[in-house]
Amino acid sequence: MTISETTNDPRLHASGMQVSQTDVAIDVIGMHKWYADFHVLRDINLKVMRGERIVIAGPSGSGKSTLIRCINRLEEHQEGQIIVNGTELTADLKRIDEVRRDVGMVFQHFNLFPHLTILQNLTLAPIWVRGIPKAEAEATAMHYLERVKIPEQANKFPGQLSGGQQQRVAIARSLCMKPSIMLFDEPTSALDPEMVKEVLEVMISLAEEGMTMICVTHEMGFARQVANRVIFMDQGQVIEQNDPQNFFSNPQHERTKLFLSQILH
């Protein structure tokens, strides 16, 4: 998808897209992270309001994935604060699990559980984390499988599905936990070109419902269409941040200009 193909979708101005002015979903304050001696994230400050849709872009190795993996503590930060839904992430395992329950994550390589059927993938956490009865969890799972348009695959194993289908299942799996925030870590990067659209469509419909989302992605068309804010990162730092209109048409930083000129051709 190139930038010229996308227009401002009128659907996005529906009532579901309201961004809260007061309710903070994620607050990252002066956060630093090191891998041993390597300083991967430097002084990250990011406040995400409830209902906001944020796209993080940047060259590979810029720390985008690491940043969102810090938000559900798949990675540990060493300095500063990360507050998710009012809970600060510390070494306290119980609080980490509380936050994770409420923050869905979609990975580049789907990471479905290959030994479980699609339905079992979707009901595992609702049953064993939320304590929902099996029948109810399965009903919810079928509901979300219908939303991602593959209810007929419920009893197959992940290995029998295409990449696009697997990624949609992965999104449904996160939604079954009824999260208030969704994190997407390059969800379309490992897909065949023909399958990117079906995944993006699901993500767009989620945005329409007012889900708070942070997406690390190279899909600039998606960013234009859905994001309220685009964040550009390089060398572990936030270099530029703007609404998509200005970000794409009027980038300020030299590095941003260079990046955009490389990927928008």
């Binding site: 409420d102 994550m105 990975f107 799996r173 936990m177």
Partner: peptide, 21 residues
């Protein structure tokens, strides 16, 4: 793959449930 540990963790499953399931 590490992704399996991470996917289980990101769903909020605690250590023993992650290991068992």
């Amino acid at each position: 793959p590490r992704g399996q540990y991470e996917a289980a963790a990101s769903l909020g499953l605690g250590y023993w449930k992650r290991m068992y399931f």
